[in-house]
Amino acid sequence: MQIPKPTEQDKEVFRSLISESPAVQIKPMFGNLGAFVNGNMFAGLFGSALGVRLVDETTRSELEAIEGTGPFGPDERPMGGYTALPSSWHSTPELASSWIQTALSEVAALPAKQPKTRGKK
């Protein structure tokens, strides 16, 4: 599977939309970027697509009702619980920011992800 890469502009706009909080981290993931809170990803880039994780089914359905949204991640295996924003997210930063904040709020309420322990070699 070929993993698409975001442009530098995609990365710059993504970073500008993510809340500056000590609890939030932006990390590289397979050439893309992910935004995490308490170890759980709440938003990310997959190529030029921006996706958010919405835990609440009603909220996710509300986002999915917007024209241009769709599955997030590889076509062969989209990421469950994540929805890609319309491809116009660059030109509608207020819409993107609103959904990112919603995802951050929902995912921050989840239990913190425990780091994986490595087995002995």
Score class of each variant (00 low, 15 high):
3 I>Q: 02
5 K>W: 04
5 K>N: 11
5 K>P: 01
5 K>I: 10
6 P>Y: 00
7 T>F: 11
8 E>W: 05
8 E>S: 13
8 E>C: 05
9 Q>F: 13
9 Q>E: 15
10 D>N: 14
12 E>A: 15
14 F>P: 06
14 F>I: 06
15 R>A: 08
16 S>Q: 12
16 S>L: 09
18 I>L: 06
20 E>P: 02
20 E>A: 14
20 E>I: 12
20 E>Y: 08
21 S>P: 03
22 P>D: 14
24 V>R: 01
25 Q>C: 03
27 K>Y: 01
28 P>L: 01
28 P>S: 04
28 P>D: 05
28 P>M: 00
29 M>I: 07
29 M>S: 11
30 F>K: 08
31 G>Y: 02
31 G>K: 05
32 N>M: 07
33 L>H: 02
34 G>T: 12
34 G>S: 12
34 G>R: 12
37 V>D: 03
39 G>V: 08
39 G>Y: 11
39 G>T: 11
40 N>D: 07
41 M>A: 13
41 M>R: 10
43 A>K: 08
43 A>L: 07
45 L>Y: 02
46 F>Q: 09
49 A>H: 05
51 G>W: 06
51 G>C: 09
52 V>F: 03
52 V>T: 09
54 L>N: 04
54 L>Y: 01
58 T>E: 15
58 T>D: 14
58 T>W: 03
60 R>E: 12
60 R>G: 04
60 R>S: 13
63 L>H: 01
63 L>A: 03
65 A>H: 08
65 A>M: 04
65 A>Y: 04
66 I>P: 05
68 G>I: 01
69 T>M: 09
71 P>I: 07
72 F>R: 02
72 F>I: 05
73 G>A: 05
73 G>M: 07
75 D>E: 15
77 R>D: 13
77 R>L: 13
79 M>P: 04
79 M>K: 12
80 G>I: 11
81 G>R: 06
81 G>A: 06
81 G>M: 09
82 Y>C: 10
82 Y>G: 00
83 T>R: 01
83 T>D: 02
84 A>C: 06
85 L>Y: 00
85 L>W: 00
85 L>T: 00
87 S>W: 03
88 S>Y: 06
88 S>P: 00
89 W>N: 02
89 W>M: 01
90 H>L: 11
90 H>E: 03
92 T>K: 14
92 T>S: 13
93 P>D: 09
95 L>H: 01
96 A>D: 00
96 A>P: 00
97 S>G: 15
99 W>K: 07
100 I>K: 00
100 I>H: 03
101 Q>W: 00
102 T>C: 11
104 L>F: 07
105 S>Y: 03
106 E>T: 08
107 V>K: 07
107 V>Q: 07
108 A>W: 09
109 A>I: 09
109 A>Y: 06
111 P>F: 08
112 A>R: 12
112 A>D: 10
112 A>P: 04
113 K>R: 15
113 K>M: 13
114 Q>V: 15
114 Q>L: 15
114 Q>K: 15
115 P>M: 14
115 P>F: 13
117 T>S: 15
117 T>P: 04
120 K>V: 13
120 K>F: 12
120 K>I: 12
120 K>R: 14
121 K>H: 11
